[in-house]
Design a protein around this nucleic acid. Structure first.
Lengths: 224, 224
DNA sequence: TTCCTTCGTGAACAAGTGTTCAGTTCTTCC
DNA sequence: GGAAGAACTGAACACTTGTTCACGAAGGAA
């Protein structure tokens, strides 16, 4: 009479759900959000189109969850990098350069998550995604301000501007095409980090020092 | 036998073309790019849907031209403001604050031109649009660098980052909702201009002075 | 084994919009 | 005034994709 999911089934269902999300993520990383259509994602996940709807009510939900997932990873990476820094200014530098590195190493995904046209409405999760990262950066700026390293300012606005600057400079249509050269990548990350630090009021000389320190630990990531 | 367009007809045709473009622009300003659909635009321009196709080969062409037009106006305004400034640093400040004011006073249009999802491919004209504004800002940064007011840097990258910062901070989904208060608007323009100037290396104290000067002449525009 | 429930399938459906085109109206020229 | 060409109309078409659903397969209880 009563049908209960056995442990094995529960596991299989969870695995399938993850597979669909993973397929969506891979698809987005390769072809941007526009490539994330139900049919291709289903094929990639080895299920039928209809099956996707057993796990996600709609495409919007699927993409929203994808955005949330990527955002979570991103936030964790930024926190990790910033927390490992010796002081508030270094933490800010680390946070910014981490974002920069991540954007650069997964351009299409980043563009898709943040700004690429999608046919369904994912505004809410995009806003949430931004809010998380912006909030994190804002609190790092705040800490630096409180430590007396930066002038008082609207940290929320500043963090938003920083994110926009990183984004446009690194994945925007005007960003240099595919600089595969690791050294070139590092230079770019350093350049935008320097701009960001100066923007919030770090003096030029000090900013240069912070940038070099901040970029060192993430160098390896650039290759990834 | 030979049918030749009389002067009057030529004029009428040109007027109609302009009317369609104007209708598209108004529609975009009110409802964003997503609202720019053939049928509504045609109605607004007092023509039939089919007529639009006598003037523009496709929706993509219509929107591309719209983007180009707005971009032209924007560039002219920036040039005017910058050229009227007394020195290279003031010119840069004027250029940046002009862009900021324009974005703020026509948010939906700005968002639509630069970044809003569109169902047709307008990447090319968007890139061109960005390139114009970025180029202008980059040359102003260049001038300031040459004058010894700023440290040497990748001016193209810096200008791109500045545009992204302005954009995200002013029209991005996280931008404060409709600050109708003119004083608030002015403060926001000043804040982002300050961030931008510092980002390229203007010292904090000097930047604050430049910002105040630059925002004065455009105050009236904020109300518009 | 048998019956019931859940899961999976994929072809068909639905809906929104850009685009076309046969017919109509207007303009030019003899 | 009338013939010929251009411009205009708007309803029908086309095409893309997200979504549904009737049917079959698989899993769990008895």
């Amino acid at each position: 009479m009563v049908y209960r999911r056995t442990h094995q089934v529960v596991k299989r269902l969870a695995a399938r759900r993850s597979a669909i999300l993973a397929a969506a993520r891979e698809t987005a990383a390769e072809g941007g959000m526009s490539a994330v259509q139900i049919a291709p994602v289903a094929i990639r996940a080895n299920v039928a189109a209809g099956t996707v709807y057993r796990y996600f009510p709609s495409k919007a939900d699927l993409i929203s969850e994808l955005i949330a997932e990527v955002s979570r990873d991103e936030l964790a990476a930024v926190r990790r990098a910033a927390d490992a820094a010796p002081g508030p200014s270094s933490a800010l530098a680390a946070a910014v350069s981490t974002v920069a590195v991540h954007i650069l190493s997964q351009r299409k995904l980043a563009w898709g998550i943040l700004a690429e046209p999608v046919d369904v409405d994912v505004t809410a999760s995009r806003i949430a995604s931004r809010r998380e990262i912006v909030g994190e950066i804002a609190s790092r700026i705040d800490a630096a301000v409180r430590a007396g390293h930066l002038p008082a300012q609207d940290t929320q606005l500043a963090a938003t501007a920083l994110l926009g600057a990183l984004h446009e400079a690194l994945v925007g249509p005007l960003a240099t095409e595919n600089p595969d050269d690791p050294a070139k990548l590092r230079d770019t990350v350093q350049a935008v980090t320097l701009l960001a630090l100066r923007a919030v009021g770090v003096m030029d000389a000090r900013a240069r020092g912070l940038v070099v320190q901040a970029v060192l630990p993430v160098r390896s990531l650039v290759g990834a």
